[in-house]
Simulated scan of single mutants.
Amino acid sequence: MTRTIALACGLAMGGSVALADMVAPTEVSFGDYGSVEQSLTGTPGDPEAGREVMVSKGIGNCVSCHAAEDYSDVPFHGEVGPPLDGIGEYRTEGELRGILINAKMTFPGSVMPAFYKVDGFTRPGNAYTGKAAEGELDPLLSAQQIEDVVAYLMTLTD
């Protein structure tokens, strides 16, 4: 069921995601230091869509914790997370994907949300969860949104 919901999310966003290539949140394989080398969708990310996820308060809301010169036009940058300027030069796609999926695999004490995880934690309430099916939770971001954010972050170079 999770794959079906993720596929629907990808298609609704204008993507063409093949179900066979979709990696469900419970099937993610983490490597050394929390990296995830395998694409979640098999479809390249769209950097422009990734930027929208990053700066939208109702989607990723990354701007609330991270600053970057590239989106300095967006108000109210947070300072909880590190600045993202140049991150595309010192992090790999696999490292960024892993951090987005579940930052605690790389940084155990991180307060960054796990954007592609559906179990093993308590969400703040049903208004913030979205149910894929009775008893199942949707991840905070779809597989394609994760790939889009990774693609965008890779453009942030000095």
Score class of each variant (00 low, 15 high):
residue 141 L to F: 06
residue 141 L to C: 07
residue 40 L to Q: 08
residue 64 S to I: 07
residue 135 G to F: 07
residue 34 G to T: 08
residue 138 D to N: 13
residue 126 N to I: 04
residue 115 F to G: 04
residue 115 F to R: 07
residue 83 P to N: 03
residue 121 F to D: 11
residue 142 S to V: 14
residue 43 T to A: 14
residue 128 Y to T: 13
residue 92 T to I: 01
residue 2 T to D: 10
residue 29 S to T: 14
residue 71 Y to M: 01
residue 82 P to W: 00
residue 14 G to H: 11
residue 95 E to D: 03
residue 155 T to G: 00
residue 142 S to M: 07
residue 97 R to C: 06
residue 150 V to D: 03
residue 120 G to W: 05
residue 44 P to G: 07
residue 55 V to D: 06
residue 16 S to V: 11
residue 95 E to Y: 03
residue 60 G to V: 06
residue 126 N to E: 14
residue 141 L to G: 10
residue 101 I to N: 03
residue 47 P to E: 14
residue 35 S to D: 12
residue 86 G to W: 02
residue 57 K to E: 12
residue 121 F to E: 11
residue 63 V to L: 10
residue 26 T to C: 01
residue 106 T to Y: 02
residue 100 L to M: 09
residue 84 L to F: 01
residue 128 Y to K: 13
residue 97 R to F: 03
residue 158 D to V: 05
residue 40 L to R: 08
residue 39 S to W: 03
residue 87 I to C: 12
residue 48 E to V: 08
residue 73 D to H: 06
residue 82 P to S: 09
residue 35 S to Q: 15
residue 155 T to Q: 10
residue 133 A to C: 08
residue 53 V to H: 05
residue 4 T to M: 09
residue 18 A to G: 14
residue 89 E to D: 14
residue 105 M to I: 01
residue 141 L to A: 13
residue 8 A to G: 10
residue 111 V to G: 02
residue 107 F to Q: 05
residue 87 I to D: 00
residue 24 A to E: 14
residue 85 D to M: 01
residue 80 V to Q: 02
residue 66 H to N: 02
